[in-house]
Amino acid sequence: MVIEHAELVIALGREAEFEEAFARGRQAVAQAAGYRWARLIRQIENPHNYLLLVGWETVEAHTVDFRQSELFQLWREAVGEFFATPPVITHYAQAS
Rank of each mutant, 00 (worst) to 15 (best):
I89V: 15
R24G: 00
F22T: 02
M1Q: 12
Q73L: 13
E17D: 09
V79R: 02
G13D: 01
R36P: 02
N49Q: 11
A61H: 08
N49M: 13
W37V: 03
L52K: 02
H5K: 11
Q31Y: 05
A28D: 06
P86W: 01
P87M: 02
A30S: 06
V9D: 12
F22L: 10
V64R: 13
A84R: 04
H48D: 04
L12R: 07
R24A: 05
A30N: 03
H48L: 06
E7A: 05
G13E: 00
A33V: 01
L71G: 12
P87E: 10
H91G: 00
Q27T: 12
L53V: 11
I89G: 10
V29T: 12
A78M: 10
L71E: 11
E57L: 00
A93M: 07
L74Q: 14
A84S: 08
T85Q: 14
A28W: 03
V9C: 03
Y35N: 00
E57M: 01
H91N: 00
A61K: 11
N46T: 12
V59P: 09
R76A: 14
I41S: 14
P86K: 05
R39N: 14
R39M: 10
L8Y: 13
V29W: 04
W56M: 12
Q94M: 14
V2P: 09
E7Y: 13
E60Y: 06
L8W: 09
E70M: 14
E60R: 12
D65R: 15
A28I: 08
Y92G: 05
G34V: 01
V59Y: 09
A21L: 03
I89H: 04
E20R: 08
G25E: 01
E15K: 07
F18H: 00
E70C: 15
A78E: 11
A23W: 00
A11G: 00
A78N: 08
W75E: 14
F82G: 04
F18Q: 02
N46D: 13
R42N: 00
T90M: 08
A30T: 00
E57R: 09
A21V: 05
G80R: 08
A21K: 08
A6V: 10
G25F: 10
E4A: 05
A21G: 06
E17Q: 11
A23M: 13
L71M: 11
L53D: 10
Q43S: 14
L51Q: 06
E20M: 10
D65H: 13
V29N: 00
V64I: 15
A84Q: 06
L12N: 09
E81G: 14
A6Q: 05
V29D: 02
R24M: 01
R76I: 13
E20A: 09
R67K: 15
S96L: 09
W56R: 04
H62G: 10
E4Q: 02
A33D: 11
E60G: 15
Y35E: 07
R42Q: 09
Q73N: 12
A6C: 04
N46Q: 13
L53Q: 11
E81L: 06
W56V: 13
E70G: 14
I89F: 01
T85M: 09
L40K: 06
T90W: 07
L40H: 10
